[in-house]
Nucleic acid binder design. Structure first.
Lengths: 342, 342
DNA sequence: ATGAAAGCGCTAACAT
DNA sequence: ATGTTAGCGCTTTCAT
């Protein structure tokens, strides 16, 4: 190879065949190590492959097989622990069976998804995992219509119509609220995700349920909807604290949001938990490092990832399975950010 | 299509051709919208494509072209803001020119890399971006030997032999240390990355340089090497604080590490910054949210990603370019986690 | 402007 | 056990 030259194919099955003095189908056989081939020949071919640095062209294989062993992964953004853990679970499960991951990040740009989804279903990937906060997006219909294997991560079940793995959001919010009520809080602020997310709706229900049980009237002024794209948790906290009858505790929809809440509270010269108790959601590493350590609703992120991947793998085997809606258990993790109100 | 049926190709160029009453090469022409084709015919074909939901098979295209418009992205782990920002930069740059991203996560498993790299160079991807803390890995040689387009992110320059984009690590550490010295600290702990990373070596040099300038003797006991895989920052802080002459300030190698430092310090019933000043590295979102807000050395993460992607794109155009080693400027961001020693 | 034909690198029947 | 052949879906000369 001339210095700097890099043609597409580099070493092909054909080059190996010539060098080893066999037909290229024989080479293919040892490459896939599928068929029986004379051990001696195999050794020779293997040696040549090694020497010439042969690596099979994946696109050619995909073309033949009609599948690529690639899974598309559509995420909103990387860089939060939340996603990191879920992806770790996915990755681990997929790696074992030799699947690769194609990453699609929608970042702030709404609308990218549809475009991605079409190239994905265009044969590039065999299946699709979606970790995208969403309501009823149109591309989901597309996915279902062509019966393309996919699973939704962290959406709340059946309503989506697509296979999904989520958590017990209602119970999670219920537990958190219950805990606060038990501590004797009666004014509990709730910084919720936007209500277009069914997870947010579920959590609100849990929140209200607990309130009801304690005979506390629901005050809409205490729940503020936060946008997940550009979190306003800080400003919303300000709003909550400016209420005529401000909350003595605030429940946030994620750990990062909770940190913002804490930050805002401090700027009001209020103490945590003395003046204001705070609860987060997710239990990312952060929660146990910050000061004070954050009480939060744990979601089994890693398990969600693993489960989602496994479900997708199953669909790949048998696309006609009825969609499953799996819910993993949340768990309240009590740390230091809550105490009884003054 | 029968319910549940999903063959590989779904709608092919051939189906469209038949339905539109043209040859498939004509369909190809409108699909690539490359060649001149009768506007009328084009409309008709387009209409049929739309109706039948045609999406080109990427593998077939890649096979023909010998390139895939896919870039491999090798990362150690997702889920820290650091990676998130870098990837955002990469993603943005690549999206504009229609490249896709193949994600390879090495997680804790050392050794996965080599395997990945070989499938990547096997024609799956056109180029490779590596965000992997590393010294001199053997697969880098492989990359260079076959002249495979790649760029290293966040390594310190020339020594790697591969094109790279990093930051001014030495200056960053120098600035931080200088700031602390200026504040009158003389015992400055340094929780460094392992010295097998050249970035760590550079930072140490910066640290020592500043010390020298102030005539402060370098005490090896004050620098502790932390493993990036399983951070021991907390334990190392304990060690530092247990010194006969403990530090009055600690410089950490990342923001998350700094949080762990802070946590450990608090457990010793010491105040920040009153008893111990703390400085981080990176300036992730975290830094400005925690309590107290973290003084840290900002790295232009997003820009690093963009730059790396752009460099790779340039290599793709002309593989015979000499490798570039780009350094982006760090900047000390002063917040609340430092003050003069008691 | 469009059709016919070759071929990208590989796998998998089908022969031998 | 190994070679021959026919594609996988697409792009791209080369004809017409």
């Amino acid at each position: 190879m001339r210095q700097g030259e890099r043609k597409t194919g580099k070493v092909t099955i054909f080059d190996i065949a010539k060098a080893a003095g066999v037909s290229y189908s024989t080479v293919s056989r040892v490459a896939t190590n599928f068929d029986r081939v004379n051990p001696e020949t195999r050794q020779r071919v293997l040696a040549v492959m090694q020497e010439m640095g042969y690596v099979a062209n994946q696109h050619a294989r995909s073309l033949v097989h009609g599948k690529s062993r690639i899974i598309g992964l559509l995420v909103h953004a990387l860089g939060n622990q939340y996603i990191g853990e879920v992806v770790r679970g996915i990755d681990e499960e997929l790696f074992e069976v030799g699947y690769d991951l194609m990453l699609y990040t929608t970042h702030r740009q709404r609308g990218k998804e549809a475009q991605y989804v079409s190239t994905i279903t265009g044969g590039l990937a065999d299946g699709l995992l979606l970790i995208v906060p969403m309501g009823q997006e149109s591309y989901l219909d597309a996915l279902r219509k062509v019966n393309f294997p996919h699973v939704l991560v962290d959406v709340d079940g059946v309503s989506s119509g697509s296979p999904s793995v989520g958590t017990t959001n209602r119970k999670g919010a219920y537990d958190a609220t219950h805990y606060l009520l038990e501590l004797n809080h009666r004014r509990i602020g709730f910084i919720s995700d936007v209500m277009s997310l069914n997870t947010a709706v579920e959590r609100l229900k849990g929140y209200q349920l607990a309130l009801e049980e304690y005979g506390v009237a629901f005050d809409p002024a205490l729940v503020q909807e936060d946008d997940f794209v550009r979190s306003e948790a800080r400003a919303l906290t300000d709003k909550l604290l400016a209420l005529p009858e401000p909350p003595t505790a605030i429940l946030a929809s994620s750990d990062p949001a909770a940190l913002n809440v804490m930050d805002s509270v401090r700027e009001h010269n209020l103490e945590i938990p003395g003046d204001i108790s705070v609860i987060g959601f997710d239990d990312t590493l952060l929660a146990s490092i910050v000061n004070p350590k954050l009480t939060t609703v744990r979601e089994p992120l890693y398990q969600m990832g693993k489960t989602a991947a496994r479900m997708l793998l199953e669909q790949l085997q048998d696309i006609d399975q009825p969609p499953q809606y799996i819910q993993l258990e949340t768990e309240l993790v009590v740390r230091e950010s809550c105490c009884p109100p003054r």
